[in-house]
Nucleic acid binder design. Sequence first.
DNA 1: GATATCGCTTAACTTAGGTTAATTCCTTTC
DNA 2: GAAAGGAATTAACCTAAGTTAAGCGATATC
Lengths: 195, 195
Amino acid sequence: MEQTQLTNSLQTYFNRLGHDIDLSILTLPVEVHSLSKGDYLFQQGDVASNFYFLSTGLVRYVSVSDEGKEFTQSFVKGPSVIGSTKSMVTKSKASFGIQALEESIVLSYPWTAFYEQMREDKNFLEFYVKLLERIFISKEERESAFMKHSAERRYLDFCVAFPELKDTIQQQQIASYIGITPVALSRIRQKLKLC
Amino acid sequence: MEQTQLTNSLQTYFNRLGHDIDLSILTLPVEVHSLSKGDYLFQQGDVASNFYFLSTGLVRYVSVSDEGKEFTQSFVKGPSVIGSTKSMVTKSKASFGIQALEESIVLSYPWTAFYEQMREDKNFLEFYVKLLERIFISKEERESAFMKHSAERRYLDFCVAFPELKDTIQQQQIASYIGITPVALSRIRQKLKLC
DNA sequence: GATATCGCTTAACTTAGGTTAATTCCTTTC
DNA sequence: GAAAGGAATTAACCTAAGTTAAGCGATATC
């Protein structure tokens, strides 16, 4: 398939957000990843120094503790830029993996080469600034929720924030997102039913 | 005092980080905040849409829950850019306040006007990108530590990460940083002493 | 169509950490 | 130097959530 056809969805994404970015200046080959439900784009511990664009689908960021417990850091629905900023920028091992929860299509470029070419475009820099601001703000809000609210409240907040996920993904994944065990979530749901 | 003299420390900060940014293009007046120990630069709930530069001193980001419990999100030593990205970018109320833990000097510019002028400078955009990347990565690591480690481990990590703070700030502030009560921290320290 | 397998629930028990309060120790302040 | 307030410790008690395990539907596999 032609490069421009493949990158169409990314170009559209930029345009929709109001950023006048021309991808055709890139001399880099884009890579296409087709993920089935359950597949990992990359695993925790991999060096994932790519710029990833989730064209369609749904993924979760999942990190595993030394004791083997899974924790879901976030859910992301396409179209959206995804990936580990840390791994991308510092070429270090990612502290989480990205797993598809549905059939998903992901485009990627090696970050360093991509940034070297795109940084010439002030519009791209401004897009990237806005992207970082956005993901930072959402992390700020999540941290605050974790510190300030109980697990029960975090569950209720989740249901409001992701109404479409509430009934489509597994409860254990919701539990790992709000930072408790599936058993504890089941108890909370039981208690809420009674109210 | 002259504008250029006031902004000297910020100019030096940019230069040290290797960013060729010329502040003298700014037609904006800089504001200087002189904080005593305990003073707030801004409080949670204020709209703090300024670009703040902590020239010298030490601050903490502190948020308070509905029940009145304090939580310290981070400690920052000058020289460093500080502030609430969310409040700055979206002109919304800050979800935390910034409190000086020592005598501190802070410079500030209103963000919108500052960004409008500085965005013309690609070097500034790249500095701002690097700044966002850095604070994002540190948030990513903190989130991970919170999910993966016990309070005891988080205390030990704190001692390694902030050796100079360990003995200079109050234990209740350390406790609020690692997300437990002062009583619980005291218990942990007691237990560690026995080992 | 029988049988694993997986996700969820429920129960019983354990544990980390919260709550309250008393005690001591240190600073301030007058 | 006495008094008062704040910080840390310690103890007793409580609660939310973790752990383990049994049971129960679903769905998938042969």
